[in-house]
């Protein structure tokens, strides 16, 4: 019995020591790096993917020379690597400390060259998603180089770029009430007459409380029953139809400036939602509500978020659109 206990103790000790030698988290390397992706949600063309890339060498072993980021697809204008490193002050605010020259982007590679003697820095990288990346995957190669020639690098990604189109803060009014999903904007009647085949939705506001009902802010297809267009002028050539599903509580982080909304409408939501038997109008919409939309020809699905509404006619909406064909 005693022998068995001794054997177990020996085995446990061996395991403990072996486990310790396998861990190398605290190993001091000549130069080290870490990277965090800060943006959440689907990666939308025109938006940024934001990273923080940290690089460091043991104090006294040398200084950083340059930092480069190579994207697999060149970023759009607005892609840059910040030449500031940050620390957080006692009040919790980030304080910028310039450590290099402003970044230079050459094709797929963005570089910051350090002009201060520093052995550690955390630089922020903003990749503006270009149109050519839509529906593709993009990955990033971060590299830090020291003045003694040592380098370290790491890969981030691949990240899928969403197929969604997005337009923020489209103003609606009594006259600017003809909405095109194709163009992601709202037109006046005069403008809409020129492009009736591109008008998918109309907006109107009516006060019918004296008739005992709430009509308020209403959205309807140009082809909807006249009851829901309520004398709004819709030329005969404007005859597109669609399906609308009224929503409340879907607050997409891309479509609102309100803080702390970590929820997003992703491509899969557009791909899976069933809207085929929904009506072609919705009445009495409220601020911060929304609508899922599918055009009757099946070409587009969209989500319209109502950022704000006036007490009378007018408001601001934002749109995410997904092309189905």
């Amino acid at each position: 019995m005693k022998k068995i206990y001794s054997l177990i103790t020996l085995v446990l000790f061996s395991m403990a020591f072996t486990a310790c030698t396998d861990r190398d988290d605290n190993e001091i390397k000549p130069i080290n790096n870490k990277c965090l992706k800060r943006t959440q949600g689907p990666n939308i063309v025109g938006n940024d993917i934001y990273f923080v890339y940290a690089m460091a060498m043991p104090y006294g072993s040398g200084q950083l020379d340059k930092c480069t980021v190579e994207a697999s697809i060149p970023g759009a204008d607005g892609t840059w690597l910040e030449h500031n490193s940050y620390h957080t002050n006692s009040s919790g605010f980030d304080v910028a400390v310039p450590v290099g020259t402003p970044s230079v982007t050459d094709g797929t590679v963005t570089t910051v060259t350090f002009n201060t003697d520093t052995c550690a820095a955390a630089l922020r990288y903003y990749y503006r998603i270009p149109e050519e990346a839509r529906g593709k995957e993009v990955k990033f190669h971060f590299t830090a180089t020291a003045r003694n020639g040592r380098t370290v690098s790491m890969e981030m990604g691949p990240y899928t770029i969403s197929r969604q189109y997005m337009a923020r803060d489209i103003t609606l009014s009594k006259s600017r009430c003809y909405i095109s999903l194709q163009d992601m904007t709202a037109y006046t009647l005069e403008e809409a007459r020129e492009i009736p085949e591109r008008i998918d939705l109309v907006y109107l506001w009516r006060n019918k409380t004296n008739q005992g009902v709430e009509f308020g802010h209403t959205f309807a297809a140009p082809a909807a029953d006249r009851e829901w267009l309520d004398n709004l002028e819709v030329p005969e050539s404007m005859n597109r139809d669609l399906h609308i599903r009224k929503e409340w509580g879907i607050i997409d982080g891309h479509l609102t400036d309100e803080p702390d909304y970590g929820t997003y409408i992703d491509d899969v939501d557009f791909e899976t939602i069933q809207l085929g038997d929904m009506p072609d109008y919705c009445v009495n919409m409220k601020e911060k509500g929304g609508m899922w939309i599918e055009t009757a020809d099946g070409r587009y699905r969209a989500f319209i978020y109502i950022n704000s509404l006036r007490a009378t006619s007018g408001g601001v909406i934002s749109i995410k659109r997904y092309d189905m064909q």
């Binding site: 829901w228 929904m278 009506p279 109008y281 919705c282 009445v283 009495n284």
Partner: peptide, 9 residues
Amino acid sequence: VAYGTDLRH
């Protein structure tokens, strides 16, 4: 139910 309600859903 309110005016304009979609009775199918």
